[in-house]
């Protein structure tokens, strides 16, 4: 088992960077899939339907 060294090197990944990345992703998904602004809704309309986000 040489996974111990691998684990040591991969485990020091920054949690802050991970949280930041997830935050960007969730923000984009909220905007594309959920934001109720008429302009955003109209722009995203077809994609909301096509990817199964609740729409209308």
């Amino acid at each position: 088992m040489n996974t111990a060294t691998k684990t040591a090197s991969t485990a020091d990944t920054g949690l802050a960077a991970i949280v930041f990345t997830a935050f960007i992703g969730v923000s984009i998904i909220f905007m594309t899939g959920f934001a109720s602004s008429q302009t955003i809704h109209d722009f995203e309309h077809d994609t909301r339907h096509a990817t199964g986000f609740p729409c209308h």
């Binding site: 992703g25 923000s27 995203e44």
Partner: peptide, 17 residues
């Protein structure tokens, strides 16, 4: 454009995972 944005949103969450 809107599809790419949605894919980017999914991608950021997936990569965070």
């Amino acid at each position: 454009l809107s599809t790419t944005l949605t894919a980017l949103g999914y991608a950021f969450v997936l990569v965070a995972v």
